[in-house]
Design a binder for these strands. Sequence first.
DNA 1: AAGTGTTTCAACCGCGTTCGT
DNA 2: GACGAACGCGGTTGAAACACT
Length: 323
Amino acid sequence: MGRSPCCEKVGLKKGPWTPEEDQKLLAYIEEHGHGSWRALPAKAGLQRCGKSCRLRWTNYLRPDIKRGKFTMQEEQTIIQLHALLGNRWSAIATHLPKRTDNEIKNYWNTHLKKRLAKMGIDPVTHKPKCDALGPGADGQSKSAANLSHMAQWESARLEAEARLVRESKLRTTTNQLSPPPPLEVLHALHGKIDLESPTSTLNYADTGNSNCTNANLVPFNSRMCYDDSEMKFFGKQQEDLLGFQIERNGPAFCGGDISWFAAGQTAGFTGLLLDSSEAQNSSDCCGESSNVQVGSCEEDGDGEENRNYWNSILNLVNSSPPL
DNA sequence: AAGTGTTTCAACCGCGTTCGT
DNA sequence: GACGAACGCGGTTGAAACACT
């Protein structure tokens, strides 16, 4: 039995909304609320399907929508959250309350994705593209091993994220005090992650110590403190691979502090963003480009602008208080 | 000024999930 | 628990705006 159409297709208008239609929809919702979207068009005197009305309202007519150019802070937030959540636009939109998921999605696809790609960063993985590595490239096997480790890490990370989403939804439905995302996410990361998944191949140094003051550990929350000696892929090797140095702030990364996200996590992808100026100039983004410093090379005007742009984003990230 | 290519973004489509019976 | 209806989400489309030649 096939799905019935969302509405009577015959006689319903499609395409761009006219000001008159907008006015009708707006007036009706302001007076009655939207109620059932399916029933709304008839009541409001619109020749549209309910789905179209809902979309028009949520993406355009809603009074709390902020339109216009995205701010640098918003861009930064989108990039951060996309790195964390992927293409979950509605989830990302909850972090930018005045922006719609559609708008964010469009902005990502038309601006941010291209910008990252242009800078040599894979917009899907938020990691440097390594296509330049030829079959005979030096250190190929090492790089492959690194990538494998990173894939494992990514897998575990995604798994944890999925769990976070489930948990946060659960908290919301049980009406517990729930800080708004991303604080919600960070809060969950802080204390809730359980990566003892059968699919996870990562080894953790489970210290069981929420203080986690060992500066050699690279912790991600109070219960997960990664031993640098075990997690080399995220340490020296990854630094070599990525070409920038991962910050290790010791206690600031763990315990009751969520600043790992601002300081550590963002050092990951914003570090890459910053490093992308190097990637632009050098086809070997995964090669010998260690100890790269921002602004270490000469570029054309666009590159300079980009570098300054992402530098400012990094500054924002690192200077802003925990969300 | 005209033609062509590119970019942008509002809107649509189809699918998965949730809700009510 | 099964079923259908409604909702919400993400991917995609296509017309309008813009840039370039």
